[in-house]
Structures are given as C-alpha cells and as structure tokens.
Design a protein around this nucleic acid. Sequence first.
DNA 1: TTCATATTTGTAATGATTACATTTTTATAT
DNA 2: ATATAAAAATGTAATCATTACAAATATGAA
Lengths: 155, 155
Amino acid sequence: MKKDQSKRLQQQIDAINSLVLHQIKPSMQRIAIMDYLITHRTHPSADEIYEKLSIGMPTLSKTTVYNTLKLFASNGAAQMITIDEHQVNFDADTSTHAHFLCKQCGKIYDLSLPELATMPDMQKIEGHLVKEISYFYKGICKDCLAKGTKDSNTN
Amino acid sequence: MKKDQSKRLQQQIDAINSLVLHQIKPSMQRIAIMDYLITHRTHPSADEIYEKLSIGMPTLSKTTVYNTLKLFASNGAAQMITIDEHQVNFDADTSTHAHFLCKQCGKIYDLSLPELATMPDMQKIEGHLVKEISYFYKGICKDCLAKGTKDSNTN
DNA sequence: TTCATATTTGTAATGATTACATTTTTATAT
DNA sequence: ATATAAAAATGTAATCATTACAAATATGAA
Ligand SMILES: [Mn+2]
Ligand SMILES: [Mn+2]
Ligand SMILES: [Zn+2]
Ligand SMILES: [Zn+2]
C-alpha cells in the first residue's frame, strides 16, 4: 500500500500547486476540492463533490463547496460548465475544449475538436470582449447508443 | 394606425405558421408566446415572457409559459439557451449560431461566426450522436465597453 | 498570548422550475 | 345543439440548486 500512499500525496501536491499557481491560498477544504476535481475528470457538480468529500470530511459544509468552486472559477483554476440546465458542472481542465452531454445517461464527455483550437481566447468578436468560450454538444452518447437500440432512426 | 394593425396581424400569422410547421396545434397562449419570441430577438427568459404577456393576457399562467417553451424546444420550434447559469433563455431562431453573454449587463447577443457553419448538425462525433450544438461566449459587450472605462486592462 | 483577518460552518432565504390536481377549452359524436 | 372525451391551461404547492448571512473557527502577524 506504499504506492497508494505516495500517489495520493503526489495528487495533493498537484492540487496545491494548481491553487498556488492561481493565487488561491491552500486550505484543507480547497485542497480536497481541487484534488477531487483533478482526479475525477467527469465534470462533477457541487453537490456531487460535497457528497463524496463529506464522507471523509464530515464537517465540510456545502456552502464551502459552492464558495470554493466559485473562487476557483473566478481565479481561472477551474471552469464552470453550464451545459446542463439543471446544475452547474466543474472542470479542472481550463483549456478551451468542447463538451458533450448525453441526454440519456447525463454523463458529460470531453471532445477534442481540433478545428475549435483555431479561435484564440481573449479577443474581440464583433466588438465584444470575449473572456470565456464554451462549446456544448448534446445528444446520445456512444455507450447509450450501444445499449438501447431505440431511437436509432436518426443515423 | 391601420399599418400597426395589419403588421401585428402578419406577426400573428408568422407565429401560427411556425407552430404548424413544427406540428404544434395553435392556441391563444402558444401563438402569443411564439409571437413574442419572434418579435423579441433578445433571447428572453420564461419569466420575462410571462411578465410581458400577462399584461395583455391577465389569465396567463406561468406554468403555461414554461410548458409551452418546453414544447417549442422539443418540437424544434425554438431553442433553449443555457448560457446563463441562473435561468434558461429562449430563441425562435433555431439555426446553429453562436451567442455572447455580457457579464455586466446580462444581455445576450447573436454572433454570426461563419467558421462554425462548417460543422453540420445531426452527425456523430467521437461515436456520440449529436442532436444539439451550442456555442457560447461570455465577456463584456460592446456597449458596456464603451460606457465603463474600468477593467479596460485586458485589451 | 492577542488581535485582526481569512476561512469555514450551519441555517435560513431565494428563485427558477416542476408536479399535480382542477378548471377551461376544443373537438367529436350523437 | 348537446353530450362526451381529450387536450390545454390554470393556480398552488413542492422541489431543489444556489446564495445570503451571521456565528464559529482557524490562521498569522505583532
Ligand atoms: Mn472537460
Ligand atoms: Mn440567438
Ligand atoms: Zn449516455
Ligand atoms: Zn453589456
């Protein structure tokens, strides 16, 4: 179990590095939340993060999770994803990349669309100063297509 | 005032046509809501539509507005825009076009980005069946840039 | 230690959206 | 035209993600 221990330690360090890099003073909670974001690339919601972390950290407050995620977002340490109209999801990967939401299972996938990379951030478009870019796709994911054979009409 | 009358009538007809085209049986409320969407290209929220329409239609229910907009969206008569994390906005223009949300004034603008048109709807990307595409940009809009000279650091 | 500041916590709002039961409208059959 | 069934709209009460706020705790310099 030595491996697990040292791996977890390295993850913590990665989390702290990301925080410091984005001018966020590390704290128990902030490290835990950033660590969760880094090790779970499934674009979790605030509630999911709270539920999972509060198991090993019973005093964690949901408010702290919300505040912390908002702090991360405004400092560029994480990105807010508003692809789902019901809740906001978060991503430690702040690079401009596209997301796909499966309407059936709800999972959010990363998409690497090379043609999108052509458009640089932080520029003006039609006179507006662009600070954030989001590319969202919705439909039925690979896995759900494989399972259910219904609705396979639209090729 | 003859002109106004006939113009309004034509708008109603346009609204009805869009409904019928999308297999939605026209009703007073549905026509009014579609008419509002067509004549107000500002991407209104359900609440805004309700507030404005209920003036001249006091019995209108907010539930009806929500139900109707959801019906429009699932029949392809309007598109839901989840660019704002606080509420959903709607657009009678169902063509694939980008949107810009101003973080200062909250207005949502259309962007006509020709390079986006290259990607056709209803195809598979990385194995996932794509049914909807959204391109969202956020920042400070033209007007707000002109007014406030603060935060002009990021050219 | 002491004091000021930053962070976290718990609880109570808020506010958009939805559920649901009731009423009204519309269409159809008699 | 009347009765009847289905569709649509209404009003109210939940739901539930997010935020506001005040109190408690931790941090860090003096
Ligand atoms: Mn991602
Ligand atoms: Mn639009
Ligand atoms: Zn799926
Ligand atoms: Zn603006």
